[in-house]
Design a protein around this nucleic acid. Structure first.
Length: 382
DNA sequence: ATGCACACGACCTAGTTATG
DNA sequence: CATAACTAGGTCGTGTGCAT
């Protein structure tokens, strides 16, 4: 983006062409998004509101010359990476256009315990003989390879998703991080890219940039990049065209950045399957709501957010969230979470049953978003 | 040389989870 | 159920590359 502005005076027509393309894709994507939201039960009014909120990030901020301090390192690296993209585009490796992230999160990931609440060290107990974590819920079945992931890592992912900037379209092998089209290697594919810094991720999550949080967050990004998810079953219409022989696997993010210790700039690429999910099969996770919750709360909220009305046994909810708590404790945190969610106007609910003859069942429905955001901002204000 | 703006380690606290 | 053990996340001070 910044590169666009910078190169506009005195530069190739091709660039101006691509700007036009960017604009067109913008509008298409917007329309599609609006449609999705309507289908998910948002009112037209709220859809407009969400659109208004989804402003592109301020492009000039990072690289305006007079603001360069020590952060110049990051800013410069980001600029370089962006320049590379333009060169790639000029060479015809791929086409690119800007995107407006809007808190989308893959629905399938919200319904499967890939990110679990609790301590990472306790999660090794779940590994099978291939050192993979098996999962199975009503929505999907498969395994996760790589380091255990917690809700903390999910926050990292949400921030990365919220900060993504561009979509690249082209042959997989020519992308900054070469990928394979999940169905047909010869076909054009889509990836999305993010240039960011650890500080920016922290800021997105409402945290300060200082402290040991910095190192932990970087470690978290690395973990995300080290994970591969394999699905052997997935009830997800968006994946029908991709799944061959019933199974597929994907990384969550690719880390293009080489020298993480020396350079604080992260250059991240989202693989084709993620892009597919994010544009065709996503759940809207409001960070304002999420910020009020504990880790278990976040896990529960993410699942409930993927459904308009919910009706699920506490037992199933525990499986879906991947909680390691004893059932008794899980019930307690669920009650606590639901109380919070209701108090900020996100949903109404009831928990029926006695846990013995009749299982505990959580029922309820999301409330219109307006209430939630108002309550949330009210809470934040005080 | 100086100050800016960020990077990052040391240390502290509050809140969460594990344990006896 | 009480309490120990952890963890997230904060503050503060120092380090450092860059623009001025």
């Amino acid at each position: 983006m910044s590169t666009t502005a910078k190169h506009q005076q005195g530069t190739p027509i091709a660039l101006l062409d691509s700007l036009e393309k960017i604009q067109q894709k913008f509008e298409q994507k917007k329309a599609r998004q609006a449609q999705q939201l309507l289908e998910q039960g948002y009112t037209p009014e709220l859809v407009r509101e969400l659109e208004a909120e989804a402003k592109p990030r301020d492009p000039g901020k990072k690289v305006s010359p007079h603001k360069l301090g020590r952060g110049a390192t990051s800013a410069r690296l980001i600029e370089q990476a962006q320049l590379q993209l333009f060169e790639g585009e000029q060479r015809g490796d791929f086409k690119q256009f800007n995107i407006e992230p809007n808190s989308e999160y893959p629905s399938l990931l919200a319904r499967v315990p890939v990110f679990a609440p609790g301590q990472r060290s306790k999660m090794a107990a779940r590994l099978d003989k291939d050192l993979a974590m098996h999962f199975e819920t009503g929505w999907g079945k498969g395994r996760k390879f790589g380091p255990p992931l917690t809700i903390y890592d999910e926050d990292t992912l949400l921030a990365i998703l919220g900060l993504r900037q561009r979509q690249l379209v082209g042959v997989g092998s020519k992308m900054p991080m070469p990928v394979m089209h999940p169905g047909n290697p010869a076909e054009e594919t889509n990836v999305q890219v993010v240039f960011t810094t650890i500080g920016e991720i922290q800021e997105f999550l409402g945290l300060t940039k200082g402290g040991s949080g910095h190192n932990r967050r970087l470690a978290s990004v690395k973990r995300l990049a080290g994970v591969v998810i394999e699905f052997t079953r997935a009830s997800d219409p968006a994946m029908n065209s991709v799944i061959k022989g019933g199974s597929f696997s994907t990384k969550i993010i690719d880390l293009v950045t080489q020298d993480l210790e020396k350079e604080s700039c992260l250059y991240i690429q989202l693989p084709p399957v993620m892009v597919k999910w994010l544009s065709h099969s996503y759940t809207y996770i409001e960070m304002d709501v999420r910020r009020h919750l504990t880790d278990h709360g976040k896990a529960i909220h993410k699942f409930l957010a993927s459904q308009r009305n919910f009706n699920v046994t506490i037992e199933k909810l525990k499986e879906i969230t991947g909680s390691l708590l004893p059932k008794r404790e899980f019930v307690r945190v669920t009650r606590q979470t639901m109380k919070t969610l209701q108090s900020i106007g996100w949903c109404e609910y009831s928990i029926d049953g006695n846990g013995r003859s009749k299982p505990l069942v959580l029922k309820g429905s999301r409330l219109p978003r307006r209430g939630a955001s108002q309550a949330a901002s009210r809470d934040l204000a005080k």
